[in-house]
């Protein structure tokens, strides 16, 4: 798996966006007709990315941004992916130009998944966007899979269920937790809040299961945020529960590969004709291994779940943000060593 950034432009400004450390302020714009001047991936570069995926034995092209559908040649990129016999996954906010929507509509559901990130209506003043997004999802039908990011503790997800029913999209909600970028300048959920949101997640899972909707957990959730009873409930509802934090491999517009967007400032490796996904993952795993001794909580380093390999200790960005440097200075009488 690897994500290809094809656009540095977005038409929303979500407070929790994890690209804040990576995409420069001021480069975002709502005008998607502007020429590709470093804010969109060139077609040639895209072909090089396809080669990288092919030699990595990855059969799926995952497109993100910014908002990937704002790429002026989006439909051409999708066609090229299909010609290369790759499945296409698009991470979108659902507010896409008509030609992009039409292109995805024309792609069969078994070749294309559109992950539509949906924010709570009225959050961030997005009521009108919600209607537009609903129409997009309805047209995409079974290609669409709704994603919801939890970035505040007073969240509500119940609105997703009628949205799924009305649009006939996939009966799955991909649940994400907003994690901090290393700068901490995006809105995110702190480990101290995990338990509070876990209670709400389990409640929603029960309600969703009654209408045939399952949850699929994105990365960064931890085992200890759920009690044993909660865990059993989630499993009984058919939720795809997981405690994951691995190198995603996000390939940016410049051809650098980063571990994931929250860790954009930690390390980047160049994409060369020789590299493949496996070698890149190994390199990132090695570079981040020392930090993995800790986790999001003080107890992680001695946690039995972690020791057993069941839980990595949560989001690595959250973990790394716990580390700090202290410039102390000490004068001491020195003993001669015999």
């Amino acid at each position: 798996m690897a994500n290809l950034a094809i656009s540095a432009v977005c038409n929303q400004d979500c407070s929790y966006c994890f690209t804040v450390d990576h995409l420069e302020a001021g480069k975002r714009t709502v005008d998607h007709t502007l020429p590709a001047d470093g804010r969109f991936l060139s077609v040639d570069a895209f072909e090089a990315r396809l080669d990288f995926l092919a030699r990595s034995d990855v059969r799926e092209v995952r497109l993100l941004g910014g908002e990937p559908t704002l790429h002026p040649r989006f439909t051409e990129l999708v066609d090229r992916a299909r010609v290369a016999k790759m499945g296409v996954v698009v991470f979108t906010n659902g507010l896409m130009p008509e030609n992009a929507l039409a292109c995805l509509e024309a792609t069969s559901a078994d070749q294309c998944t559109v992950m539509v990130n949906v924010n709570q209506p009225d959050a961030m003043g997005q009521s009108s966007s919600h209607e537009l997004r609903r129409e997009t999802i309805r047209r995409l039908g079974r290609r669409a899979l709704l994603g919801f990011n939890i970035y505040r503790t007073d969240f509500q997800m119940d609105f997703l269920l009628p949205l799924i029913a009305e649009t006939d999209c996939k009966a799955v909600v991909r649940l994400g937790m907003a994690h901090p970028c290393l700068s901490g300048s995006n809105q995110y959920i702190h480990p101290n809040q995990y338990r509070a949101i876990a209670i709400k997640i389990v409640r929603f899972a029960r309600v969703a299961a009654k209408v045939g909707v399952k949850l699929d957990f994105d990365c960064g959730f931890v085992r200890c945020m759920f009690s044993k009873e909660d865990f059993d409930t989630l499993q009984a509802t058919g939720a795809n529960v997981g405690w994951r934090c691995n190198p995603i491999l996000d390939v940016d517009l410049k051809g650098d590969v980063i571990h994931c967007y929250p860790l954009a400032r930690l390390a980047r490796l160049p994409l060369t004709p020789e590299t493949d996904a496996t070698s890149l993952r190994s390199a990132f795993a090695e570079r981040t291994r020392p930090y993995r001794q800790a986790g999001g909580f003080k107890e992680c380093s001695t946690c039995p779940f972690k020791a057993a390999g069941e839980c990595p200790g949560g989001c690595l960005a959250t973990t790394i943000r716990r580390f700090r440097h202290t410039p102390f200075h000490l004068k001491v009488a020195r003993e001669a060593v015999a």
Partner: peptide, 30 residues
């Protein structure tokens, strides 16, 4: 050497205090 010495933390050392241990990492060499 004999006499007094002054120590400082190496600038690339970061640390975190966990429940039962403190973890130190040298950022460059890891």
């Amino acid at each position: 050497a004999d006499g007094a010495s002054a120590y400082c933390c190496v600038p690339t050392i970061v640390w975190v205090k966990d429940a039962e241990q403190t973890i130190l990492i040298e950022e460059k060499t890891k």
